[in-house]
Amino acid sequence: MTTEVTNIWTDFHKELKAFILNKTRNSADTDDILQEVFIKIIRNMDKVNQAENLRHYLYGIVRNAINDYFRNRKQIVDNAEIEEKITEEETQSLNSTIAECCIKPFINKLPDNYRDALLITEFQDISQKDLAEKLNISYSGAKSRVQRGKEKLKELILNCCAYQSDKYGNLIDTEDKNCGCS
């Protein structure tokens, strides 16, 4: 078997390498792909020996390897682009900005007990358990207060901006997103 692989290498490696390089335009990737091709040849030597046209069969393996290369490269590039678009720090900053300018004015319209519960848990990053201790109420009472506050906040926003929701409570896209109330 090693003689057969050596013969294939001697007869075809320069030709296959030139073909791969023409497609990838990258010599390091070309070497990697050529290596993968010969690994496949070694693993499937019985099929290679049965091929009617060896050159045609080898180019089929090469084309598949090149397709795999571009498919994997596209996924890597797509993931890198997504990661580069917005960092975690930028996400936090954006969320904070939205909360300060868009949500806080609505929270300030809530009754004091709900407003305080939401401001403490959502903006001061204090747990509901700590909220209960701070307000000297039960833990379940604190949870209920935060939950009711969120429901009332949702009502204020929906009533002001006239957003519609589907039967599951998800917001439905509207044409006029600038409601102008705060």
Rank of each mutant, 00 (worst) to 15 (best):
residue 112 D to P: 14
residue 82 I to Y: 10
residue 97 T to P: 00
residue 90 E to F: 00
residue 119 L to H: 13
residue 86 I to G: 08
residue 96 S to L: 09
residue 103 I to M: 12
residue 112 D to M: 11
residue 89 E to V: 03
residue 139 Y to Q: 06
residue 96 S to W: 01
residue 82 I to A: 15
residue 101 C to H: 11
residue 104 K to A: 10
residue 134 K to A: 10
residue 124 Q to E: 15
residue 94 L to R: 05
residue 137 I to C: 09
residue 110 L to T: 02
residue 96 S to Y: 05
residue 105 P to R: 01
residue 122 E to V: 05
residue 106 F to W: 07
residue 133 E to S: 12
residue 124 Q to M: 11
residue 118 L to W: 08
residue 139 Y to T: 11
residue 90 E to N: 07
residue 117 A to C: 05
residue 90 E to S: 04
residue 128 Q to D: 10
residue 112 D to L: 15
residue 125 D to A: 07
residue 107 I to P: 02
residue 101 C to W: 06
residue 91 T to Q: 10
residue 124 Q to L: 09
residue 131 L to T: 01
residue 128 Q to H: 04
residue 109 K to E: 15
residue 120 I to L: 11
residue 94 L to V: 02
residue 116 D to Q: 11
residue 84 E to R: 10
residue 120 I to F: 12
residue 129 K to I: 15
residue 135 L to C: 03
residue 90 E to M: 06
residue 103 I to W: 06
residue 83 E to G: 02
residue 111 P to E: 15
residue 105 P to N: 02
residue 93 S to G: 02
residue 110 L to P: 07
residue 135 L to Y: 05
residue 108 N to Y: 11
residue 99 A to W: 08
residue 98 I to Y: 08
residue 106 F to D: 11
residue 100 E to D: 10
residue 86 I to T: 13
residue 102 C to V: 04
residue 115 R to E: 13
residue 99 A to V: 06
residue 125 D to F: 10
residue 117 A to T: 03
residue 114 Y to Q: 14
residue 94 L to M: 08
residue 116 D to S: 08
residue 117 A to F: 08
residue 113 N to K: 12
residue 138 S to Q: 08
residue 124 Q to I: 00
residue 123 F to M: 13
residue 109 K to L: 14
residue 83 E to Y: 09
residue 103 I to D: 05
residue 82 I to P: 13
residue 96 S to P: 00
residue 102 C to W: 05
residue 85 K to H: 14
residue 87 T to L: 06
residue 101 C to F: 11
residue 131 L to M: 05
residue 136 N to D: 15
residue 124 Q to K: 14
residue 95 N to G: 10
residue 81 E to G: 14
residue 104 K to R: 09
residue 94 L to D: 08
residue 132 A to L: 07
residue 86 I to V: 12
residue 116 D to K: 09
residue 94 L to P: 00
residue 108 N to P: 08
residue 82 I to C: 12
residue 85 K to T: 11
residue 88 E to Q: 06
residue 119 L to Y: 10
residue 121 T to S: 14
residue 106 F to G: 01
residue 124 Q to H: 10
residue 99 A to Y: 09
residue 136 N to E: 12
residue 105 P to V: 02
residue 121 T to K: 03
residue 122 E to T: 14
residue 93 S to P: 00
residue 115 R to F: 13
residue 117 A to P: 12
residue 138 S to P: 03
residue 132 A to R: 03
residue 118 L to S: 07
residue 113 N to P: 07
residue 88 E to R: 06
residue 119 L to K: 14
residue 126 I to Q: 08
residue 103 I to C: 05
residue 110 L to H: 02
residue 80 A to Q: 13
residue 95 N to E: 09
residue 104 K to H: 07
residue 124 Q to Y: 11
residue 107 I to E: 02
residue 104 K to N: 09
residue 129 K to F: 09
residue 111 P to A: 12
residue 104 K to I: 15
residue 81 E to Q: 14
residue 90 E to I: 01
residue 115 R to P: 12
residue 90 E to C: 00
residue 119 L to G: 02
residue 98 I to N: 01
residue 128 Q to K: 14
residue 119 L to R: 09
residue 129 K to A: 14
residue 82 I to W: 10
residue 87 T to W: 04
residue 83 E to M: 12
residue 135 L to S: 07
residue 111 P to C: 05
residue 121 T to A: 00
residue 139 Y to F: 15
residue 87 T to Q: 01
residue 130 D to R: 13
residue 139 Y to I: 07
residue 82 I to N: 12
residue 139 Y to W: 04
residue 90 E to H: 04
residue 122 E to F: 05
residue 122 E to I: 10
residue 121 T to M: 09
residue 123 F to D: 06
